[in-house]
Each structure stands twice: as C-alpha cells, then as structure tokens.
Amino acid sequence: MTGALLAAVELHKSFGSTRALAGVSFSIAAGEVVAVMGPSGSGKSTLLHCLSGILAPDEGTVTYDGHELGRLPDAQRSLLRRTDFGFVFQFGQLVPELTCLENVALPLRLAGAKRKIAELAAVEWLERLGVADTARKRPPDTSGGQSQRVAVARALVTGPKVLFADEPTGALDSLSGERVLKAMTDVARASGTAIVLVTHESRVAAYADREVVVRDGRIRVSEWQ
C-alpha cells in the first residue's frame, strides 16, 4: 500500500497451540486513526504488539517508515518506542512510585533530556489533556479517567508518529471513557499522530476514521473511507 506509515503483511503468530494471528495484513497512513475491533481472544491485541515491535511475528513482516521491524536490533526498536511510538493500555502502565508529572516526563528523560526541560514539557501535556492538577499526585491517588489521560499525555509527550492504544477506556465508565477518547483523538489529530486503537466496543471504534475487524486471527472487514 502506498503512503502507508506502518504496514503489516501476512502476519502469523501462535502462542503454543493457540493461534492468535492467521495471516493478517494491515496498514495505517500518517495521521490516520484506525480502530482494530473484534471479540476478546480474536487476536487484536497480538496484532497491536506485532505492529509495535513488542512481539515478533512467526511469519510475515511489519514495516515502519521503510524499516522492517524484525530486522532492527533491540536497541533500534527501543529507540523507535522512545521516539516514534507511544502506548496507552487499559490500566497499570503508569509507574506508581513516580508522580504523574514525573511519569509524563519519563520518556523524555530516558531519551536523555534534562529534568527541568522534560518536566516543563510534561506540564504542558498534562494541561493539554486537562489533568494539570494531577501533576504532584501519584497515579494511585488519581481517578481512573485521570490516570488514563496522564497515560495519554505520557504517550504523546515525545511527539510520536504512531500511538498504540489497547482498550484505553476498558476500565472506565462511559463518561470518563468518552472524555479520554476525545482528548486522545483531538490531541493526536492536532499533532498528526496516527492511532492504532484496539477495542471491542463500537462506541470507542466510532472515534476512528475507519476500522478493521479481526475475527479468529483474520481481518474480516476492512472499511475504507
């Protein structure tokens, strides 16, 4: 596919005797928001892990910006995660020992930024997601919706090209979920970040530009705008 920022071709992946992916192809353009839908156990999370280079597929290739992820050494993949990719999961991805501000500043510091500079940027992102008041709190002391927005801020602070979100509102009530989704898609669209949004909820998928449906390890429906 031309113009694809991230593309997967014929991915196969098994865990023991469980087949998670059975020949999935997928692609996403820069700035595009794509929902990956499907019932639980359909392989949608595995697809996300393969796309982001966290998992290596048994067969098939994942190409990001002209580089085949499987051929990159670990250090290069780490670098990608640090600079070009962002992640938001259902819960539990914030470091409970650090304050929300420090959590958001963490990716920048890992990349070698000075503490002051990293934290200034972090404050700005917390503000953009409307959770500036959580800066000094630790994640366990914030509400679920707040910590998810902090997680989104942390995922976007490095200005990634692709944001991988796996059921980002799965643990939230409808209203908090909607707020997180709106904040996430608004901010990502404004900064031209593509989103791979894994969800089993159509209301969440409705925030995307288009969706693909994974069932039994295969893409069933792929709708183009």
Partner: peptide, 10 residues
C-alpha cells in the same frame, strides 16, 4: 517492563 515499553534499552 513499563520503562522498556517507553523505549528504554535493555
């Protein structure tokens, strides 16, 4: 693992 996810090298 979180740090790894955020792109910290091994």
């Amino acid at each position: 693992a979180t740090l790894r996810l955020l792109g910290a090298t091994a």
